[in-house]
Design a protein around this nucleic acid. Structure first.
Ligand SMILES: [Mn+2]
Ligand SMILES: [Mn+2]
Ligand SMILES: [Mn+2]
Ligand SMILES: [Mn+2]
Lengths: 217, 217
DNA sequence: ATTAATTTTTAGACTACCCTAAAAGTAGTG
DNA sequence: CACTACTTTTAGGGTAGTCTAAAAATTAAT
């Protein structure tokens, strides 16, 4: 049985290596988990002994098959709980992450699977992130960001890339949420910023950074 | 912020003192939490320093106001989650306790209150136990056990006193569950056992112990 | 009132996890 | 190749929580 701490390390390594291969270095992991490099080294030795990570001194670490399975199951639980909180308990999408950080560690396969069924076997969480199924497979995700679209096109918000509370509440303040319709009026070439129309009502100017972090279709 | 371990100690002390006053001795607590007396002594010192228990060497321990509040909030969460598991995720009543033991430690007042609302502000868990409200008050509970009733009377099962998995699955095997109708045919005086009719269909003989652990009305 | 049995506490040690400071390894630069 | 900057590991120590074995206190019995 793994501890909450071990599970968090595995999840951190998984997400680092998902973004950029070979990027799960001691320092990167420490940063992500808000701990110190020496603590990471310590933990890598223990996880390695349990055959959860491939660790060699001074080298970036990777997950073993077993480690990957655990990480994915934590992510699955995290996202299912987030969806539950939003859909059933009416939380807003920027309020659920911290609670899900706790709920993701509840150990009961039955519970996870029944929650999955209760939610109708969803394949996206409230932030538009893919929810892996019982077998650990991620649903296909051919998502486009707003920044990839041309002028005069119209689209619907289906997710965010950046999940930070600051970004989410910025969106909230702009009245942008899941399923909001956005029309691109102008796409400035020089700084990639945009003039947009939100829900056909409100005009706004958004920066390149914002456009790159909004998934649309 | 309290640790899971501290919370479990508080809950154990609360339930010991609920049943019999002055009964939260070092040994009793150790037994309840499946640990050793020396560990309990150690923890009592720490909880005492945090003003959660009143502890004096060699004496039974009691909870302070603060300690009682924490214990009740854990119990509230435990019972709300149990009800959620049964009502919404269709678990059986003998399957939910262990999962609720984990869920009761999730820290978010908002979550608890919204779960409460989602379930319609219930005042009983799936085992018929009272669920304290947001203010920590237990709903009035004037429950009767089957053993208190006379011959030729009829009643409905509304809860159990003993929550052990073994008792619950014994009931399951007898087709006795929440809301089952039971008619008492004979109440033997010498051993307090009973001949009963379950749901008007099935006859059965039950012992005093069973009758004393079934709440009915 | 002694002695015996039982309960509780202390002493000392262990694991998981974390930290700081110092040592060692790796990489980049002239 | 030597020097520097940076990363990682080691050494040593801290806290929370646990355990066993022994000492001390309490309770029960003679
Ligand atoms: Mn999240
Ligand atoms: Mn986590
Ligand atoms: Mn329970
Ligand atoms: Mn518990």
């Amino acid at each position: 049985m793994l501890s909450l701490t071990e599970e968090n390390y595995l999840k951190a390594i998984f997400s680092l290596n998902r973004e950029v291969a070979e990027s799960a270095t001691t320092n990167a992991i420490a940063e992500k988990l808000d701990t110190k490099a020496s603590s990471v080294t310590d933990m890598m030795k223990r996880l390695s002994k349990k055959d959860l990570v491939n660790y060699q001194k001074y080298q970036a670490v990777s997950l073993t098959k077993k480690g990957k399975e655990v990480a994915i199951s934590i992510i699955r639980k995290h996202r299912l709980w987030e969806l539950f909180l939003v859909e059933k308990l009416h939380f807003k999408w920027d309020e659920v992450h911290d609670i899900a950080e706790q709920l993701e560690h509840i150990k009961s396969t039955q519970l996870t699977d029944r929650l999955d069924a209760f939610l109708g076997f969803p394949d996206q969480d409230p932030h538009g992130d893919p929810i892996p199924n019982k077998e650990g497979q991620f649903p296909e995700d051919g998502r486009t960001t707003l920044s990839e679209l041309n002028q005069k096109t119209s689209c619907k918000v289906v997710g965010v890339k950046d999940h930070s509370s600051s970004f989410l509440s910025y969106l909230e303040s702009m009245d942008i949420e899941l399923n909001t319709i956005i029309q691109i009026k102008t796409h400035h070439a020089f700084d990639s910023s945009m003039e947009i129309l939100i829900e056909g009502k409100k005009e706004a100017h958004i920066s390149k950074e914002v456009a790159q972090n909004l998934y649309v279709e």
